[in-house]
């Protein structure tokens, strides 16, 4: 936890943005420099504005010893030009500094061979398809190796934000967006969603793992490879990959959708009053055409999820494994 006195001390004494998060990408330093420029410029003007206000109020306030205002001009073209020109000049300085950094934030150096990662955002989880076919709930990158993220969304607008990278990019349904950077410090950083996306917007998070060396990255990439997955493993994996877990809990607590714990073989009451038995066909229908049968107490919100047969069987196996009782 960060204590307020530290923050105030940090903001007042240290180099402006002293309380900013750690810098872990190639662009972070440039961003912080522009931030510091703006911070000190603002601090200066704020001191001028508040200082003069206080000074004038003290010196010129109405009191017995001062019968009225003193003679002073009511305009001065020289002064007006002065305080038009100074901000204009500063605008050019800020713009130049910012644009230089911004261009570096949008383009990698020519000839860079970036690691490409396809990012899929959906309510309310992230999925990262790394080059080489490895998909994960986590983003894995290598320190010093440029990264290019291609973002897509399957439902609404989301936004990928890593404070330590000083980067943010919306994922927009119907188009691809890009984000490029080079991680500079090994570690694990939070990935947050910053475009409001509904109920669980604030928990739509993931982590970015920056590996310190190629060996560590390779070790991660090799995890889970080799050998045929069991149906149950397929189910568990698909349940995470496709974002099912965002709405359907596995512990029995109702979320946006019903929990999948202990439903196998049960009779579910539907919104239209009918009863449906939870079997293979019911599960298949619920995945392919989710609106067909809605369990009472829930809304028709789920998008159809295109799964192949083995994946559906996997989900069935997973649900069976969560059957209540011994």
């Amino acid at each position: 936890m960060i204590r307020l006195p530290d923050l105030l001390a940090g903001s007042l004494i240290a180099a402006g943005p002293g309380y900013m998060p750690e810098r872990a990408s190639s662009v972070a330093e440039g961003v912080d420099q522009v931030f510091a420029l703006l911070f000190w410029m603002s601090a200066f003007f704020l001191v001028v504005i508040i200082g003069l206000t206080v000074l004038f109020v003290i010196r010129y306030r109405a009191r017995a010893s001062r019968p009225g205002p003193e003679a002073s001009p009511d305009h001065s073209t020289k002064l007006e030009i002065f305080w038009t020109a100074i901000p204009l000049l500063l605008v050019f300085v800020i713009f130049a500094a910012s644009t230089k950094v911004y261009l570096a934030m949008t383009e990698l150096e020519p000839g860079a061979n970036p690691q490409r990662v396809q990012v899929t955002a959906r309510k309310w989880s992230w999925w990262f398809d790394h080059a080489g076919g490895k998909g994960s709930k986590e983003l894995h990158v290598l320190v010093g190796r440029p990264v290019e993220l291609v973002l897509a969304s399957t439902d609404v607008v989301h936004s990928l934000y890593v404070p330590q990278f000083r980067l943010k990019q919306d994922a927009v349904p119907g188009r691809f967006t890009r984000m490029v950077f080079t991680p500079t410090v090994p570690g694990t950083y939070p990935i947050l969603c910053t475009e409001y996306c509904g109920t669980n917007h604030s928990t739509m998070s993931a982590v970015a793992v920056v590996h310190p060396d190629q060996a560590s990255f390779d070790a991660w990439a090799a995890e889970g490879k080799g050998g045929e997955e069991s149906l149950l493993q397929v189910g568990v994996r698909v349940f995470e990959e496709k974002g099912c877990s965002a709405c359907h809990s596995v512990d029995g607590s109702p979320g946006v959708g019903p929990s999948i714990k202990g439903i196998w073989g049960k009779d579910e009451k539907l919104t239209d009053g009918k009863i449906a038995k939870v079997d293979e066909n019911y599960i298949r229908e619920s995945i392919v055409t989710p609106g067909a049968k809605i369990v009472a107490g829930f809304d028709d919100m789920m998008p159809p999820v295109p799964l192949d047969d083995r994946e559906i069987q996997g989900i069935v196996a997973y649900i069976q494994s969560l059957k209540e009782g011994p």
Binding site: G30, V31, V34, F35, L38, M41, S42, F45, L46, I49, I50, T53, I94, F95, A97, S98, T99, V101, Y102, M105, S159, Y161, P163, R166, L167, K168, T194, E195
Partner: peptide
């Protein structure tokens, strides 16, 4: 004066591309 001063000056941080990207939203 004081509050508009802060409000206006912090607007610069958000109009400036490089700093808006981390600060946005």
């Amino acid at each position: 004066f004081a509050i508009f001063g802060v409000g206006g000056l912090t607007g610069l941080f958000l109009g400036t591309l490089a700093t808006d990207i981390p600060l946005h939203d």
